[in-house]
């Protein structure tokens, strides 16, 4: 479904990605791991078209993403969360989640401009439908009680769930999560891990997961890709990757 081929990215003198190749098959949960600065987030930003790619290609369902502008990526079926949580801070939780569906409801959004200006029934109905869909997602992620609160005012763990709800609102086929459990407590980690595992069965989603929490990644992933200094050093089932000598060397001295 997703195929990264020889992807190369440079920032000035630094080569952040040095010919990285890996595939993500439909329905899989793939873990993307590696020490700090390995290039994991950079890979996400390439797929999101936020960073320029200097070499190689990224194919999604057979189509090169490099020809697409960033705002088309969601419409093609790829959603993501951010390592440092990027929410619409002054909007309510409900509005954050509703905006998540923008790529999906795009055609309507443009037509709704005039409909809403004159408060036509059709526009109000469309708005109601979006709100209902968002309400369902918020219920699933335990956000109902804060639906009308401003995103900025909420604690970190809640903000992470808002971001996940927003990403799911686009009804993606590929969901990219950048460190979804970082900064969460034990109970929250268990809950979210269960949720991510559940996504696979229920929604038939494909998930690409960046995470430093080893037990979590090894536990949920069907396959793990390891990066180190912008190079792919391993790619395989969690059990094999865990015992790979090169992976152990890369992680030596760093917490794992």
């Amino acid at each position: 479904m997703l195929s990264c081929q020889n992807v190369r990215v440079q920032f000035g003198g630094i080569t952040a990605l040095d010919g990285v190749t890996f595939d993500v098959a439909k329905g899989e949960i793939v873990g993307l791991i590696g020490p700090n600065g390995a290039g994991k987030t950079t890979m996400f930003n390439c797929i999101s078209r936020l960073y320029p790619v200097h070499g190689g290609d990224i194919l999604f369902e057979g189509r090169s993403l490099l020809a697409e502008p960033p705002h088309r990526i969601a419409t093609l079926g790829i959603s993501r969360t951010f390592q440092n949580v990027a929410l619409f801070d002054t909007l309510t939780v409900a509005d954050n989640v509703i905006l998540g569906a923008h790529g999906h409801a795009h055609a309507h959004a443009k037509r709704r401009f005039f409909g809403e200006a004159f408060r036509l029934a059709s526009a109000l109905r469309a708005e109601r439908a979006l709100a209902d869909e968002a309400a369902e997602l918020m219920a699933e992620l335990g956000l109902e009680s804060v639906a009308q609160r401003t995103a900025r005012d909420l604690p970190f763990g809640t903000r992470k769930r808002i971001e996940l709800a927003r990403a799911l609102a686009a009804r993606p086929r590929l969901l990219m999560l950048d460190e979804p459990v970082a900064g969460l407590n034990h109970a929250e980690i268990d809950e979210l891990t269960g949720f991510i595992r559940g996504l696979k069965g229920r929604r038939g989603l494909t998930v690409l997961l960046v995470e430093h929490h080893m037990n979590m990644v090894m536990g949920v992933s069907d396959k793990v890709v390891v990066l180190d200094f912008g190079r792919r050093i391993a790619d395989g089932p969690p059990a094999a990757v865990k015992n790979d000598p090169e992976v152990i060397r890369a992680y030596l001295g760093t917490a794992s």
Binding site: S48, P70, I73, T75, S79, R80, F82, A86, L99
Partner: peptide, 12 residues
């Protein structure tokens, strides 16, 4: 609020 998040949800 967040141009990056906006473009990730499909806003031009």
């Amino acid at each position: 609020d967040s141009p990056v998040a906006a473009s990730s949800v499909g806003i031009d």
